[in-house]
Design a binder for these strands. Structure first.
Lengths: 225, 225
DNA sequence: CCAGCGATGTCACGGCTGTGTAACGGCCGG
DNA sequence: CCGGCCGTTACACAGCCGTGACATCGCTGG
């Protein structure tokens, strides 16, 4: 996977550092998505697909270590923490929270790039996509295993149903419109009018419980969580 | 893996640092084997089974970075480098050589232990390093011996079947697509359409029990666990 | 409050793709 | 020379997918 440029999620509140770091990473062969605080960081993370997360420790709204823990709940992608001071306590807490590396500011460009490549190399060695178990109210979705459980009981899903459920589970509580689902589950680009999504949502509902997928009229569907 | 104490290979020339570090690691729950220079380090590494290597950068006979590269030739265990000075150049070279982390001396005890646990946790997520017996629901697979047992009873496997089963067992519960299996078991790069995998999966199923390998239509196969 | 319309739920059906399975020939090692 | 493992091919079939038709729901404007 990701034969192209690795996709980095950079969460940093200092605008100057954010911009220079983003530029620096871009020149070193990474694609960068930036967020200014912890909350938008987790939102961005859930919205997109990233290969590695680069988080400042001191962040408004949600600090970097909590953010790392949140990401770890649903993903196994490598996480690198950034900190102004190299406090031992920070480091231990960060690593225990699930971070994979720790870089002290101010950092050297090539060093940062090398560390990112190092964690990516390690993560990619046994790919599997980097995702863990997604949970939503008694529902467990295993993206790597293409399987799901309701209240602990395994549910038999077809491939399309599984892919649809995984896509919904990646965005619990967020309304997914039909165009996006078509694109991500069926690789369609623009089918103006099709009942494909509707039908498969019904089939999914019949298997995992009708109330778990909510219809938002005129917008799409969302998985309750 | 390694439910017991992780086994650390420590290579450090300074006797005082070597002893205090070894003691420190032991109190933090690691088993330690020490070597005083690069040459004995690589000898010790080849002689024993280790979960992680902790290498000083400045070493007599063979320096730490070369040692890391030598280890990487035959093993995927995590490697942590130790250095007296945090020179950026060293760091980049070390990471590019295959090291997984980098700790500057003098280091803090808990920090070092936390970093070691972090790289071990990452390495342990999938197989890698000290690969022993893989288990999955009454099925035992021994990668080193290329053999398997079902409910304690040995099963005769051909080499291809064994390699396929090992690859599946390394990723229990994870769907493996045909392309990946072809690449890892048969060293194929891109055979667009072949039934090779299917046929061998059938043969495997006949030997270890049909229900143990699950078909995920349009995606691949997975070993249940 | 009602009528109308667009959006969604539900059902049934047929094509088709992907997979199971058996058989075969070649190659290698003993 | 022979046994058996491997890779290929052919064929059948299960069942999934996608489509269309029709029922229903829920806004919204009059």
């Amino acid at each position: 996977m990701t034969a192209d440029r690795p996709h980095v999620l950079l969460v940093e509140d200092d605008a100057a550092i954010r911009e220079t770091t983003a530029l620096l990473l871009q020149t070193h062969g990474f694609d960068v998505c930036v967020s200014a605080d912890g909350q938008t960081g987790i939102d961005d993370f859930r919205a997109g697909r990233f290969d590695v997360a680069l988080l400042d420790v001191m962040l408004p709204r949600i600090d970097g270590i909590s953010l790392a823990r949140l990401i770890r709940e649903t993903s196994a992608i490598p996480i690198v923490l950034l900190s102004a001071r190299s406090e031992p306590f920070d480091m231990v807490a960060g690593l225990e929270a699930g971070a994979d590396d720790y870089v002290a500011k101010p950092f050297d460009g090539p060093v940062l790039a090398a560390r990112l490549r190092a964690v990516l190399r390690r993560a990619g060695r046994h790919d599997a996509g980097g995702e863990r178990l997604l949970r939503a109210d008694g529902l467990e979705v295993d993206p790597a295993g293409m399987s799901a459980r309701v209240g602990g009981e395994p549910v038999a899903l077809t491939t399309t149903e599984a892919r649809l459920l995984i896509e919904l589970a990646r965005n619990v509580g967020i309304v997914m419109n039909r165009a996006t689902l078509l694109e991500r589950v069926w690789d369609y680009r623009w089918d103006g009018d099709t009942r494909l999504v509707d039908v498969h949502v019904q089939r999914l509902r019949a298997k995992i419980g009708r109330e778990r997928i909510e219809t938002v009229r005129g917008a799409g569907y969302k998985l309750v969580g």
